[in-house]
Amino acid sequence: MAFLEIKDLEVYYGAINALKGISFDVEQGEIIALIGANGAGKTTSLHTISGLIPAKHGSVKFNGKELTKTPAHKIVSMGMAHVPEGRRVFAQLSVLENLTLGAYTRKDKNEINESLEHVYERFPRLKERRTQAAGTLSGGEQQMLAIGRALMSKPSIVLMDEPSMGLSPLYVNEIFDIIQEINKSGTTVLLVEQNAKKALSIANRAYVLETGKITLSGDAHELMDNDEVKKAYLGE
């Protein structure tokens, strides 16, 4: 059984069928990319996996446990963290408060402090600005905070929704380097991206979503050479 297994997942927004029965799986240690155009259902997939939106049909199995009936706040402590689209840091709270909220489900103070040190090591800028309100950070710094906050729950898998959106090219490269580092340290990554070229360059495998259905899947490097993908998503 796969680490994270999505089967025949169907999601509706009212009458709109946003996901029309998608299936895919993620193995431990992989970086999996979900690519596709606006409105293809990428964010919906992630929201359904982490329990923010109910599924109409199908199943999401994580470590053998069914997630579709589990409330969102319980999924975090099972080892899944979600870096939402648009970062969604708590703007009024300080950087440090944001990070401690990331460890909300954890009890051991020493372990939490250890994780905090790790996050500060990875993102020295967050340490410099720890007392600053998160809303005053730049977009790239907020993205780092959102990622750091997710890592504070010590996840075995991180879902990342458009981490490069709205960032300058310099930050985009930095964020993708960070994603690779996080993966190398043993965390599985499910990555949703519009920047297909970048996503495919770091992913092991990828799935292409089109209006709520998976139309293509396979090895990320092979997909990069696929003519359809080239034409539709890589702009070549």
């Binding site: 982490s50 923010l52 969102a72 706040h73 319980k74 939402p84 969604r88 840091v89 489900t105 729950s153």
Partner: peptide, 11 residues
Amino acid sequence: EDRGAAQLMGI
């Protein structure tokens, strides 16, 4: 501030 993000923290 953000109910959805709060849920993602496990709240």
